[in-house]
């Protein structure tokens, strides 16, 4: 489906489609990051979020506006926006996809970023398998786009996947901090 739009089909213009949901998630995560910084000396925080991870995250946050602006320059398509294991059910010859309430216009690679980051963040896939998951997802996605006939730049898709993967993981920070607070 995404390849069809990337290959030139006009994007749907329905006003009920979501726009830029990640901006909302990251705004929530900003609050969580501030809390994390405040409690960075706590033993539990140090164990889960070592100082270098917190510092790198803060640096990426500073650069975020630049990347968020850049996302609109990536090839746009129709996205599910919540693709991960709990919303996908593999059957013998098809996959059932549910929970389409976030569906909207997004960038090439954005859904695949969620498929990697959300599955890792929510422990649907063993974190030690992260690299393998990333490779399988990216190559499968590119194969699908090529099958449809999209001949665009794979590096742009890769950029979308990596960038939105980080944003997705960052967005999950609010869940982690809430859990630690509890």
């Amino acid at each position: 489906m995404q390849g069809t739009y990337l290959a030139g089909a006009p994007l749907p213009a329905s006003d009920w489609l979501s726009r830029d949901p990640l901006t909302h998630w990251t705004a929530d995560a900003d609050v969580a990051l501030k809390k994390l910084v405040d409690y960075r000396d706590h033993p539990i925080v140090q164990r889960i979020y070592p100082a270098e991870v917190i510092d790198t995250t803060r640096q990426l946050c500073k650069e975020r506006p630049l990347f968020l602006e850049g996302r609109h320059r990536l090839p746009q398509t129709l996205c599910h926006q919540d693709v991960f294991r709990r919303n996908l059910f593999a059957q013998d010859d098809y996959t059932l996809a549910i929970d389409w309430e976030m569906m909207g216009i997004g960038a090439a690679g954005e859904d695949m970023a969620g498929l990697v980051s959300a599955n890792l963040a929510l422990r649907e896939v063993d974190p030690t398998q992260g690299d393998a998951l990333d490779k399988v997802v990216f190559s499968g996605y590119m194969d699908g786009l090529r099958d449809i006939g999209w001949q665009g730049d794979a590096d742009l898709v890769r950029f979308g996947l990596v960038w939105f993967g980080w944003v997705g993981l960052y967005g999950c920070l609010r869940i982690a901090v809430r859990a630690m607070s509890d």
């Binding site: 006003d15 009920w16 489609l17 979501s18 726009r19 949901p21 909302h24 998630w25 926006q81 389409w100 309430e101 976030m102 569906m103």
Partner: peptide, 9 residues
């Protein structure tokens, strides 16, 4: 539209 989640989407 603007909301990430819309209950009738």
């Amino acid at each position: 539209g603007a909301a990430p989640r819309y209950w009738k989407r």
